[in-house]
Design a protein around this nucleic acid. Structure first.
Lengths: 190, 190
DNA sequence: GTCTATATTTGGATAGAC
DNA sequence: GTCTATCCAAATATAGAC
């Protein structure tokens, strides 16, 4: 414990994220955050002088970076179908196959700072735009593409909620298998 | 302010529910609950001697009663299609057309008492069972019926999350219009 | 950079007057 | 049944030693 960081910044961010994700903004107490990171509360304040709101902001920035990586295959993959399949795999991994909640849901309950909820909304829109773009590339018309992207996000978020409430990750896994068809299929998909 | 209740029990329950719904269990402070109900904290303790967990239990009991009413048309209506349509209308009303969150989602984050999360899981299963039954009556085979009920709950919950995060209730309204087809349609619906 | 110690505020809960 | 006043614990945040 000298003057050099005992815990890597990315690790701190990831462990903070776990706490905010599981308990929401209000449920993430400094004690819980401190315990999860393995640093005393005062040490957290050294890294985040603006306190809990700053920690939440850092978490969302980390989530944003992770989301970019998750969505990258949607435009980087020459084969759209493979891109969507890869996104689905990354989503499955990121949400631990449905065993953890989504920060976009849990961190945006009443009580969270406004900039947090605003950032979450931006992330959701990025996600929608990336999926709509993939659907477009797969041959859907623009209106269809937007509708399918919206339906996809609705199902992902809903599956996470239902899986968590029922303690049944299979709901999430099942839903993910249907994602590619939803975004890509030619036939009219609800 | 004599010895007679200044606020009706059902009203208290409903106002407590608003706070738990919006902020989750952890976010529902006694001060917020007190302010919402219009009674001092001590008065809340008179009605709920076991404190905040008891208030949360009362809220879930109220939600359970409301859910029964919401689902009643599914088996009470002779015409299944009309029953599903009526359920959809009641859901729309209960969630204020997508402007409020679902207690099953927000009250079940880490930090809530175990009996609360267990109760929420039971309510979700009741909901699924009622929709699966309607789908069965509409001609689906048992496996289809369960899958469709699950898909319906996933979409409802997901639409509430996405609507809230985007501040766009139209996502919820759009999703609700698709519910009847999902539960009733003969053709293979994802 | 991390720690112990402490300050301050809020949250949960109780006592007792009316 | 509701209130004011109070208690205690927990949550947020800061000071200063190492």
């Amino acid at each position: 414990m000298g003057r050099t960081a005992s815990v890597d910044e990315a690790v701190v961010q990831a462990r903070l994220a776990e706490v905010f994700r599981a308990g929401g903004y209000a449920g993430a107490s400094l004690s819980a955050l401190s315990a999860a990171v393995g640093l005393q509360r005062a040490s957290l304040y050294h890294r985040f002088p603006d306190g809990k709101p700053a920690m939440a902001r850092a978490v969302l920035q980390g989530i944003e970076a992770e989301l970019q990586e998750t969505l990258r295959p949607l435009h980087a993959e020459p084969d759209v179908a493979e891109g969507v399949a890869e996104m689905a795999r990354r989503i499955a991994r990121g949400y631990q196959d449905g065993r953890v909640a989504c920060v976009l849901d849990t961190m945006t309950l009443t009580g969270a700072p406004d900039d947090i909820t605003a950032h979450a909304a931006r992330l959701a829109r990025q996600w929608l735009a990336a999926m709509a773009d993939a659907s477009l590339r797969a041959g859907a018309d623009p209106q269809q593409a937007n509708a399918r992207a919206q339906a996809a996000l609705v199902r992902i978020q809903g599956a996470l909620v239902v899986s968590r409430v029922l303690h049944d990750p299979s709901v999430f896994e099942q839903t993910l298998t249907e994602l590619p068809a939803l975004l890509l299929s030619d036939r009219r998909a609800l």
